[in-house]
């Protein structure tokens, strides 16, 4: 097994070039791509995202199943990652879109897969990405009115945010409940 093991070490950290098949299918719509640990990755732009996904969707053996959608903060840019599977098989491709932090906008894929409704809302509230065309991009996990994007690397806990402010009952119970109980009330010795 040592051979396979060494191969695995090499492939996770050092990507290999894309297969000829994927290069031919997606080459003109991507800005880069590689194979990491046996799994292809395609890098694309927001404009080319939907055409690329559509093309993968319309192959004779299509990448028809979106299984996952998440965001990654790379400092200057935010990346949205789409994990697509070839039907119900083992083959999977990761499609990545780089978005500038200042203008993080990407078209929604809810028209293609209903799975995307919730994960896109999650990425929107956690990373500040706007999904153009999403029918309802309210907060999903965070409370309404929450300020900031918690999964960004530079997010800082903001005490002035009313939704994060300390519970007055816990901070100063006397002020809320009207003073400490007198000694004879507590019955302490």
């Amino acid at each position: 097994m040592s051979e396979g093991q060494e191969q695995q070490i090499a492939s996770v950290s050092s990507p290999e070039p894309l297969s000829a098949e994927l290069q031919e299918i997606a080459g003109d719509l991507t800005t880069g791509g590689c194979v990491r640990a046996g799994r292809p990755e395609l890098l694309t732009t927001p404009e080319n995202l939907l055409p690329l996904l559509n093309r993968l969707h319309e192959l004779p053996e299509p990448y028809s199943r979106l299984t996952d959608l998440c965001g990654v903060d790379w400092g200057d840019r935010v990346q949205v990652v789409y994990a697509l599977c070839r039907g119900y098989g083992a083959e999977m491709v990761l499609v990545k879109v780089d978005l500038p932090r200042a203008q993080a906008e990407v078209p929604t894929v809810t028209g293609l897969w209903q799975l995307a409704f919730w994960p896109e809302r999650e990425v929107a509230e956690m990373f500040g990405v706007t999904f153009v065309g999403h029918p309802n991009c309210e907060h999903l996990l965070l409370p309404e009115g929450f300020v900031g994007y918690p999964l960004l690397k530079d997010y800082e806990y903001d005490r002035s945010n009313p939704l994060l402010s300390p519970d007055p009952l816990r901070e100063d119970p006397d002020a809320v409940l009207g003073g400490p109980p007198s000694e004879d009330e507590t019955g302490a010795s």
């Binding site: 996770v12 950290s13 050092s14 640990a37 799994r39």
Partner: peptide, 10 residues
Amino acid sequence: KPDPGEIYVR
């Protein structure tokens, strides 16, 4: 300290 890289495990 894994080398820089990424993995998706299911």
